[in-house]
Amino acid sequence: MTLLVVTAVDAEAQAVARGLPAGADVLTAPVGVGPAAAAAGTARLLALAGGRYRAVVSAGIGGGIGLAPGATVLASRSIAADLGADSPDGFLSLDELGFGSALAPVDAGLLDRLRAALPGAAVGDVLTVSTVTGTVAGTAELLRRHPDALAEAMEGYGVACAAQGAGLPFAELRTISNPVGPRDRAAWRIGDALAALTHAAPAFATLLG
């Protein structure tokens, strides 16, 4: 059976494809930016697959929290960090509102295999946001609510929802392009992050055994 690796954009999909071992039964596909596009695009691929896929991985670049550009992060959980409600007492998560959960755990077996294949990768929470954090105040509030977070991206939770709906195991891998914080395009290292994604890609083949 095939492993499905979904990215937001084509540049990420190409970076993964460049690093895959020859003959690896891995399909890499860009599904769009943001959690809604990621969920819809992944669900469409799964619905048309006829049971072809054995697992789903959300992969791509993202902002790092305490990590330098080029670092690799494996999600222990994918968290919809801005899914909830504002209130006079502060932000209320989906869990606090009682409308479901903003926490999507990753499959323990997939995570164990990825950790073994990528011993230098950091492991921790990866946040999914619809609006990328770009201010000092926003960063402080994000870290107050999610002190164990290592990265921020825009698709993981959406992909996780699609995988869960299809009954498939899910994992998330991010490579760091910039620090989370005040928006500073001069600090972005997208080339380094894409190169790290290519370097990490052989680990996906270990999920096929």
Results as ranks from 00 to 15, higher is better:
residue 1 M to T: 13
residue 1 M to A: 13
residue 4 L to P: 05
residue 4 L to S: 07
residue 6 V to P: 07
residue 9 V to W: 09
residue 12 E to I: 08
residue 12 E to Y: 03
residue 16 V to F: 10
residue 17 A to S: 15
residue 18 R to T: 11
residue 19 G to P: 02
residue 20 L to Y: 14
residue 23 G to V: 00
residue 24 A to P: 00
residue 27 L to I: 05
residue 27 L to R: 14
residue 32 G to R: 07
residue 37 A to K: 09
residue 48 L to Q: 15
residue 48 L to N: 11
residue 54 R to Y: 03
residue 55 A to S: 09
residue 57 V to M: 14
residue 58 S to V: 08
residue 62 G to C: 08
residue 64 G to R: 02
residue 66 G to P: 05
residue 67 L to E: 00
residue 70 G to M: 10
residue 72 T to A: 01
residue 79 I to S: 10
residue 83 L to V: 01
residue 85 A to F: 03
residue 86 D to F: 09
residue 87 S to A: 03
residue 87 S to E: 12
residue 89 D to K: 14
residue 91 F to H: 04
residue 98 G to T: 01
residue 101 S to H: 07
residue 104 A to N: 13
residue 105 P to T: 06
residue 107 D to I: 08
residue 113 R to N: 02
residue 120 G to A: 09
residue 121 A to S: 03
residue 124 G to M: 06
residue 125 D to N: 05
residue 127 L to G: 05
residue 128 T to N: 08
residue 137 A to I: 13
residue 140 A to F: 02
residue 143 L to T: 14
residue 146 H to K: 14
residue 152 E to W: 03
residue 155 E to H: 12
residue 159 V to M: 05
residue 160 A to G: 13
residue 161 C to V: 15
residue 161 C to Q: 14
residue 172 E to V: 13
residue 175 T to D: 05
residue 180 V to K: 02
residue 184 D to Y: 07
residue 185 R to W: 11
residue 190 I to L: 13
residue 194 L to T: 10
residue 196 A to Q: 01
residue 197 L to W: 02
